[in-house]
Amino acid sequence: MANRNKKQPILHISESRRVFKALFKRKIAVISAAVILLTIICAVFAKWVAPYDPYTMDLTNIKAVPSWEHLLGTDALGRDVLSRIIYGSQSALVVAIVSVLIAAISGIILGLLAGYFTKVVGVIIMRFVDTLQSIPMTVLALAIAGLSGGGLVNIVIAIGVSLTSLYARVMRGQVLKVKQSDYILAEKMHGAGNFRIMFLHILPNCIPVLIVTITMQMGSAILMEAGLSFLGIGITPPTPSWGSMVQDGAAVLTTRPLLTIAPGIAIFILVYAFNTFGDALRDALDPRIRNRK
């Protein structure tokens, strides 16, 4: 200890910088981030990226097989499939990200409160969550659509609300577990307030489970949107959506499988990218495995 470094320690290599560094070290994270970014670019600049207008029908050229003119062929109304997939990424991204964020934020806050204040607040919140969960998602979406019409915003809300109960439950369970730890008692013993304990200590320690849930739900949100669109309360045709493209293609699956497979692969790639990115993010956020290869 004699020739100790006299320099003051830099206490704050900021947490976010460490996370980014660890994230970029992971190849899979970079690749999936690139895929997500590419999808976002396609969605935002669809007008320029897509070769055709997704609404223009060409009834003389329906269900065309792939050609240089139409790379993925045309659908039952003669619309270019590739262009519809590119435009469809807009609603897919909005549904996947926004509805899951709505669900995650509200669910996490509810679960955090319910798990931390187990007595009165917890009971009230959990009964509310039970009520929410007892309403089937389709009915909820129908109700919202009935009140204010269908459309993207409404199904995002419907999916978001119906996923909330899941987050609230997962979060509450985690909070109950983390709350028992000595390091939380240590915070209390040092006089930390409830707010500090909940958001600075309990929440970060619940992150692994939350991230897994969030990335898993992004996939199912896209599929839910497909289901709701099929019922006619989601994204209304002719607005392109990957879910309804899969549904439409199903009718001619045996003769023109590409009409189903192409949007299906698009869903798969986006969902997979979200999942792998989520996994990498979870690892990067955990100081114990952050620097492990």
Partner: peptide, 23 residues
């Protein structure tokens, strides 16, 4: 148990410094 009493997601510096901020 020193394995249980330190928040695994905080640097030891910020753990030690926390009472300074709280109070």
């Amino acid at each position: 148990d020193p394995y249980e009493s330190l928040d695994p997601r905080k640097t030891v510096g910020s753990t030690v410094g926390e009472p300074l901020i709280i109070n």
